[in-house]
Simulated assay, not measured.
Amino acid sequence: MNLATAFYPIGKPGKPWGDEERAKWLSQQSRQRSYESEVLGVVERLRLGFDVEEYGCLDYGTERYSLMAIRSRDWRDDLPVVLITGGVHGYETSGVHGALQFVEQRAADYAGRVNLLVAPCVSPWAYERIHRWNPNAVDPNRSFHENSPAEESAALMQLIAPIRDRVRLHMDLHETTDTDESEFRPALAARDGQPFEPGDIPDGFYLVDDSVSPQPDFQQAIIETVEEITHIAPADDRGEIFGSPVASEGVIQYPLKQLGLCASITSAPYRTTTEVYPDSPRATPEQCNAAQVAAVCAGIDYALTHH
C-alpha cells in the first residue's frame, strides 16, 4: 500500500468525521491486554512503600477504570516536587512500565530529597487497546487545556492543581512507534478531513523541549545519560526528527502549552517529553524501560543540582 496515496478506511477524503465515523472506529477497537493485571497489580505492590490514591475514574460503557497516582510517603512541604507521567498515549508501553520501574527500583534513592508524584498510566482504556486515542477518538495529549474534551487529561490536571506551581521537574514518558506512521497519523488525518502527509519514524531515543522556554543543558544531560542505555535518534537529511528541526543532539522543540501537551501542565522550570523507539532492531523492551528510568533519574539529578 502506498501511504502517500492511500486513505484511511473510515470516512471520506476531505470530510471530518461525524458521530457515524467515530462509532465505526470505536467498533473496531478491541481489548488486547489487561490494565488491571499489568498496571494495577504493580501499583498494589507499591503500597508497601508509597501512598497510593485513586485520583479519578473513567466510565466507558460497561467498563470502569481507576486512575491511580503514587506519592512519596514522606511528603514534605519544604522539598521540591517531581512529577512523572506515563501512558498519556496508552499504546506507548515503556512510558507506563518505565514509570512503574522507576518507582520500584530507583525512587528510594531520592527519599528525603524530593516529593514524588507519579501517574503511571493516564489513559488505561487506550493502554488495553494499544491505541493513541480515548474511545471518543480524542487524543489526550492534545487536550491539556481548560474545558478539556478528554476525561483523562482533565483528571490529571485536577490532581496536580494544588501543587502545580511547586513542581520543579516534570518528566512525561512517551514512545514513537512504527504504528504512528502506519495507523495513528493516517487516522488523525482522516478524522480531521485533512490529507495524510507521510513522514519518517526516527530510529532511536529523543526528547521534546518547550520552544517557549527551552532548557538545552537540562535536555542534553538526559541525552548523555540515556545514550549509555540505547541509541539516540539522528537527524534526517533535512536536519529534522519527525518533521521538527533538531535543536541539539536528540532534542526537538514544540510549543507545549499551545499544543495542549501534557508537559505543559505545570510551571516546572525543568520539563521534557521522552520518546523511546521500541520498534528498533537495536532495542529490546527491557532497554526501552531502562531508558525511561535513566531519563527520569538524569532529570531529577539535574534539577536537584541546578536550581
Rank of each mutant, 00 (worst) to 15 (best):
F205S: 06
V138W: 04
Y277R: 09
N289I: 11
E224Q: 07
M1A: 14
Y206E: 01
D178S: 13
N2R: 14
P149L: 08
E275C: 02
Y8S: 03
D77G: 12
R164A: 10
R282E: 13
V208G: 04
Y302T: 10
R73P: 06
D172H: 08
P202R: 05
L156G: 10
I229S: 09
V208S: 05
P13Q: 15
Y8H: 15
L3K: 06
E36H: 11
L207S: 08
M1N: 10
P162W: 05
C262A: 15
D200K: 14
V118K: 07
R142P: 06
L173H: 04
G95P: 03
D78K: 10
S264V: 01
S153L: 08
Q287Y: 00
C288Y: 08
L83S: 07
R47C: 14
R45D: 13
E54W: 03
T230Q: 03
S213P: 05
S34N: 06
D139G: 12
Q32T: 13
I252M: 09
H145Y: 14
F7R: 14
E151S: 11
T266K: 03
Q292E: 13
F205Q: 01
W125F: 12
I84T: 02
E146T: 09
H131S: 15
N141Q: 07
Y55D: 08
E275G: 10
A154H: 04
N141C: 08
R106H: 12
I222C: 01
R282C: 05
E181W: 13
H89C: 00
V212E: 15
R33L: 05
A263R: 09
D172Y: 00
F242M: 07
W17P: 01
A221C: 14
I201E: 01
R47W: 02
V103L: 12
Y35D: 10
Y55V: 09
L156Y: 05
L67S: 05
P80G: 07
R47K: 15
F184V: 03
A221M: 08
F7N: 07
Q253D: 08
Q253W: 06
E36Y: 03
Y55C: 01
E183W: 14
P198A: 09
E92I: 07
G41Q: 12
I201Q: 05
V226E: 12
V82L: 04
Q105P: 06
A6S: 15
E227R: 15
A150Q: 12
E175C: 04
V114C: 11
A247M: 11
P149A: 03
Y206L: 12
I241R: 01
R64L: 11
A291H: 01
R31C: 14
L261D: 00
